[in-house]
Design a protein around this nucleic acid. Structure first.
Lengths: 343, 343
DNA sequence: CTGTTAGCGCTTTCAA
DNA sequence: TTGAAAGCGCTAACAG
């Protein structure tokens, strides 16, 4: 705070009123070219930087938005932060990234506090805060715009950015079919997430289009966690209708399947193909043999932030996913299914 | 901004002056128990939240600090953010996390702008911004306290928190040597991080002490990301001087090496030992076969932030690293090195 | 196109 | 232990 100069200093140096300086600062029209230049020169000379605090207090917008997240995967959050950050850069806004604990009984209050204390103009919610009831309720009661990235529920409630889960699941299923698989186990996602239903639908649609029968025995329940994947893998691999490929609705469950496959001495993908959704790019790194649907996390964050900053009314944007094939998922060799490999 | 209540509303409801409310807000002494309770009740009733902007403008401290970083590894940044965040929580401060590009010619100006615009009370610098001359110069010229996490240069300049990178790399290298390895590939870190040089030094020192030759061909460049690890692994494993162990300067790169090893059908650690620095515990969980130097990143960030918030004068704290051995890294079996395993 | 005058919501003197 | 008044640096009406 050594020698901060203020708008008054600038106006004095430039020989104009403070209001004129303010106009220049905010890019208003109706400032003569000559005046504008004089003011800008003065600002430069004094290294003038407008106080955000003062602008907030005087005006009605802060130029700040908040990103609220509950940190699950570093990679996921990194992508989200970068996406939001880039959009803010482009709009000359500041980003306040605030972690919360969606399990905390006080989350709603925390968010309310954050918003009123900092005067942010809007809020970006990333999963799983997107579906955290206390937070949504707090935000709705505050008359502040917010956008959600991949909301699982209540799509109609706010603007949101998401991907086409049904198509993604369809793509992956079709890919597996093209590899020669005929019995493909599917592990559902958590029932509270809209995406789970969508993915199941996509799976069925692909089977249907390929003329393959839908077998209920090849669908296992799941809750998006590692243990669900383990349970489902046991169900499939020890059951009567043994699939040659297992498609999990997210990467944690796919990890569970891989773990079981490994324990049983099965090689992936020679003995069993495992596919999953990939939130983070991490899964791909960790398990190169995993073929995944890559979710465009960063792009979604960017788009969501853009939507918020542009003040778009209730807009929904669907972004494209990618199917990322890492290892060649070998066509099924039924003989191999029973052999006990080394590895 | 629907119905924000202000300090005046509170004072009216509580039947006291605004100054008294302010006193309660700031935890001043000299407020009678009775008055304090009345005020607190009024605040609660009105869901009062003090405007940060107003407090900044009126007072001389903002209750905000900035964390400035240049995002190289998501894991690393996640840990840094969490550490800073926790320290802020404890001190009731707000954290502004701001990415910058240390290569940008304007980075100094950007930081200067950030500081004066937001009125932050202090700044935490994480590597490699810790050693970014334009930023350091800008900060020094502003009379604002700042603390550095793992600075590579000018230790005496500011308070800092760091670990002994050379010793850590030395420890790991010595460990690998003790396991019987004689050819140990080393993957350097990003050149903008001073720690990279330290680690290379530690690697060389350990070799030297053990009487092993330093072979330039066993040092690969790296940029702290997954792809660097992949590239380096290819370089080593397909090159003429094939090492029996690869030591990566961070965990993202170690992951890349593991991925390649897997693709090539090599078992770790039977065919190839892989070691790395580790910002989180995640890498260790995912790859139990990985031996790592655990960097107390989060702890360093926490300590640095604490130092800043407590206004400690020129303090340096060195935190201890740990060598975490996960799987028994089998002594080298040269025969295995050329065999192409199934797996 | 430009200037004047009130505040925004708080903290800080200075009194009581 | 409490209160009254004067700003902090800016923007928002209103004038000119």
């Amino acid at each position: 705070m050594s020698d901060r100069s203020n708008i008054k200093d600038v106006s004095a140096l430039a020989g104009v009123s403070v209001k004129t300086v303010s106009r220049v600062l905010n890019g208003h029209r109706y400032v003569s070219q000559d005046t504008r230049e004089r003011v800008e020169k003065a600002m430069q000379e004094l290294e003038f930087r407008p106080s955000v605090a003062a602008r907030i207090l005087a005006g009605n917008k802060s130029g700040q938005i908040a990103l609220i997240y509950d940190n699950h995967s570093p990679y996921y959050m990194n992508q989200v932060q970068m996406g939001c950050w880039e959009a803010c850069q482009a709009s000359n806004s500041r980003l306040l990234a605030q972690p919360v604990d969606v399990g905390d009984a006080m989350v709603g209050e925390q968010v309310r506090g954050l918003v009123t204390e900092t005067h942010v103009d809007g809020v970006v919610l990333s999963s799983p805060v997107t579906d955290c009831a206390p937070v949504l309720k707090a935000l709705e009661g505050m008359d502040i715009p917010f956008v959600r990235i991949s909301p699982g529920t209540n799509h109609a409630m706010t603007s949101s950015v998401f991907m086409d889960d049904a198509q993604a699941a369809d793509d992956m299923t079709s890919y597996l079919i093209a590899q020669g698989h005929r019995k493909i186990g599917f592990i559902r996602g958590h029932s509270s997430h809209m995406a789970s239903e969508e993915r199941l639908f996509g799976y069925r649609r692909a089977l249907d289009r390929a003329g393959l029968p839908f077998e209920p025995a090849l669908v296992a329940p799941g809750e998006f966690d590692f243990d669900s994947g383990v349970a489902a893998a046991h169900l499939f691999l020890n059951g009567p209708t043994r699939p040659s490929a297992i498609f999990a609705s997210n990467d944690d469950m796919a990890a569970g399947v891989l773990s079981v496959a490994h324990d049983m001495g099965l090689s992936v993908p020679q003995d069993l193909s495992v596919a999953g959704f990939d939130d983070t790019t991490l899964a791909r790194m960790v398990w190169p043999q995993l073929t995944t649907i890559h979710q465009p996390t960063r792009e979604m964050a960017f788009a969501a932030t853009q939507l918020l900053l542009q003040g778009a009314q209730l807009t929904h944007r669907r972004l494209q996913h990618d199917l990322i094939e890492r290892a060649s998922v070998a066509p099924v060799n039924p003989d191999l299914l029973s052999s006990q490999d080394l590895s």
